[in-house]
Amino acid sequence: MKTISFILFLLLPMISLSQEFSLSGKFSGENTSQIVLSYVNNEGDWVSDTIQIEDGKFQTSGKLKGTQRVILAGNTQSKNMQDPNLGYFFMEPGNIEIKLNENEFKDLIVLGSNSQIEFKKVESKTKPIRLELDSIANNRSENSQDLLISGNNKIQKIELNYAIDNPESNISPYFLSYYQRRIPLDSLNSIFNTFSIENKNSVYGKNIDDLIQKNIAKAKDIAPEFKVKDINGNSISLADYKGKYLLIDFWADWCKPCIAKFPDVKSLIKKYKDHDLKVLFVSFDKTKEDWRKSVENHNIEMWDHTYIGLDNLKDSESISYKYDIQPIPAYILIDKNGEIVDRYEGASKSDKGFNDLVNKLREIIN
């Protein structure tokens, strides 16, 4: 026993060091003096590391909680996830090198990360579909929504099948975590159980396990109570909507699909305003200032609004946590008795989209 204990003692420093990373890079551009690397450290805390660029070079180091897809931000000009100075890549413990150009963060080159190489191979299969979806989104037609849903389902199938076929891969937990709220809980649990111990304990594995252990409010359940402040500082609770149909719209200004849905949401409100339909917009914007400006810019100030913010999504008292919302856009429909009618878009666990919401409202109100 002493020998085994001594060996484990010797291994402890190695285990700790195995989470260390060193990142260095070359940068080309005249309007960026620093970049920000965001990741989860080995203690499970979110870190935003500001790195200075000197003579076209930068470097940093730290401790990483296993393989994860990190964020690299430069001189961003918008809150949009498509900003050309916002990039993502898979980083793992060890020495990583990057080649980066201003306004081309999406095309950064990564050396020293086998996980990034593996991810790029999967991405090569989904990229043609994504380009097609961009074209559809920019050239809207009557069947655009159906085409977008079909295309996204194809991408989901490719990435989920990769996770199923490669349970030992370090990027599989990322794919499963991304789609964890879009597939039935029993399927999620079944796939998760095939993962290695390392993958189960990864950043994404922990997220998946938390969801599996959580009791999610579903259709026909009594809607979880909430008490929030509206945009004017007044208190709002679920009880205030008793005797009314309530549509909760989870959104953010940086979420393009959320904004694209606003005309449809407004049409529903107009159509059923005399049939006891109320709407509560719940914002995931980065700051309250962004939120207030967005409400005004999108001409939705006449309805109820409350703010969560990106930093509070996992707060046990937030609406997003109580209703398990992620990703957005997401919609929860609650009936006059406070019972959940169903969940749609990002809130759905069974691929129910906005058209399903429209049809359900038509069914229960008419």
Rank of each mutant, 00 (worst) to 15 (best):
V279P: 07
K322L: 07
Q34N: 11
L148V: 10
E92Q: 15
K352Y: 11
S237P: 01
N138W: 01
N337Q: 13
L238C: 02
K227P: 05
Q116H: 12
E104Y: 05
N215I: 12
N299H: 14
S78Y: 00
E92I: 03
W303T: 08
N312Q: 11
T76D: 01
T306Q: 04
F175K: 03
E54D: 14
L268W: 05
I129H: 00
I71Y: 12
Y204N: 12
S38R: 09
K227N: 14
K273E: 15
K227D: 11
N138M: 09
S5C: 12
Y323S: 08
K218W: 03
L247W: 05
A223K: 08
Y245T: 06
I308M: 00
N166W: 02
V341N: 00
R362A: 15
G205T: 02
T50G: 05
P257S: 04
K336N: 04
S294Y: 00
L188V: 00
Q59S: 15
Q59W: 06
E363L: 14
N170H: 12
V358W: 02
A260I: 12
I340R: 00
N139T: 07
I319Y: 05
I334L: 03
Q326H: 14
I259F: 03
N152F: 15
D276E: 15
I164V: 14
F284A: 11
S78A: 00
F90E: 06
H275L: 13
W46Q: 13
L111D: 13
D253S: 14
P167L: 11
N143D: 15
L268H: 04
R182C: 02
S22Y: 12
N143Q: 14
I15V: 07
A223V: 07
S124H: 01
L238F: 04
I269V: 14
S144F: 08
Q77P: 05
E132G: 11
K227Q: 15
I136H: 05
S18I: 01
H275I: 10
D55T: 08
A252K: 07
K57C: 09
D221G: 05
K220V: 10
N101A: 13
I35Q: 04
D342S: 11
D304R: 01
K125N: 07
I158L: 09
I259T: 04
S18Y: 01
N312W: 05
I155N: 06
I231L: 13
A219W: 08
V36S: 11
S235H: 09
I71K: 12
N31G: 09
I208H: 03
K218Y: 09
A163V: 09
I51F: 05
I183M: 12
N359Y: 03
G66V: 08
G44Y: 02
I109W: 03
G87N: 04
I212S: 00
L86H: 01
L313W: 02
I208A: 01
K214M: 08
S172W: 00
S294P: 03
D351W: 05
D146N: 10
S22A: 06
Y331C: 10
